[in-house]
């Protein structure tokens, strides 16, 4: 019987596919991968589009979308022209969006690697950041650590102001919780202070950002959080290399 560390020595590639390693199999630095999950209609794709518009001039970035049964999200990003088409790719999830980001991440890992390989071979240089957007799901969806380095969970005020209180893996454990569409709060009777209190209760010191993409500062605070993640990760990658 082989021991696992023995296999690691003989077949070092066996873990290099996973997000745990900061380097690609050829030894170059891979991009930071950030997952965005959350219920249907909470504004994941709008947040991804806004992040692309804000970050695309400073960073080399790409997007993987996971649609439930169409290519809607990828098509929306293409139509909005937030990134050139070669930087956007769609994964099909067979009616189970959470499976593709958590239980069987193989298709998403391939999409991520293909983006890195294809852009490198086109002379676009290394990618800094890949956003992996999940298909709209429920409150239990989380990204595997084998796929992403950090995850953002996006909920909105119109989906019910009791969602932070209900908790669940997405709300409680995501590296960043975004409460979107705050501009709608007065119209749907959502109690933002109560949501903030409940989120704090569920998440302790983990950050929460209340966001409205319909005015200033828009996606700015989330973009700042992404930049901080990237700075932190680039530092770690340099240390590991």
């Amino acid at each position: 019987m082989h021991l696992d560390h023995e296999l690691d020595e003989k077949f070092p590639h066996r873990h290099t596919y996973s997000a745990a390693h900061p380097q690609r199999p050829d030894g170059t630095r891979r991009a930071l991968r950030i997952g965005l999950g959350g219920p249907v209609g909470s504004g994941k794709t709008a947040t991804v589009a806004a992040l692309c518009r804000t970050l695309r001039d400073q960073l080399s970035l790409a997007v993987v979308t996971n649609d439930i049964y169409t290519r809607e999200d990828a098509a929306y990003l293409l139509r909005e022209a937030v990134l050139p088409p070669e930087r956007i790719t769609a994964v099909e999830t067979g009616a189970c969006p959470h499976t593709a980001i958590r239980d069987d991440i193989s298709a998403n890992l391939e999409a991520v690697e293909d983006l890195e390989d294809d852009l490198a071979s086109q002379g676009a240089g290394p990618l800094d950041l890949i956003l992996v957007e999940s298909g709209g799901d429920n409150l239990t969806a989380t990204f595997s650590k084998g796929l992403t380095d950090a995850q953002i969970f996006v909920i909105d005020v119109a989906g019910g102001d009791d969602i932070p209180r209900k908790g669940g893996p997405g709300v409680s454990t995501a590296d960043l919780l975004v409460v979107n569409k705050t501009d709608l709060a007065p119209y749907v009777g959502s109690d933002l202070e109560g949501m903030a209190r409940d989120a704090k209760e569920q998440r302790g010191e983990l950050p929460v950002i209340f966001q409205s993409l319909r005015g200033e500062p828009g996606v700015g605070p989330v973009a700042d959080w992404v930049r901080a993640q990237l700075a932190d990760w680039t530092g770690k990658a340099a240390h590991a290399a």
Binding site: M1, E92, T93, G94, C96, T99, A100, D103, D104, I105, S106, A107
Partner: peptide, 21 residues
């Protein structure tokens, strides 16, 4: 361990992408 290895390989949860097809 061969008998159990076959169960691992044939398990529908083996993470090899089959769930999307």
């Amino acid at each position: 361990g061969a008998a159990a290895a076959l169960l691992v390989l044939a398990d529908g949860r083996f993470p090899a992408g089959g769930h999307a097809h």
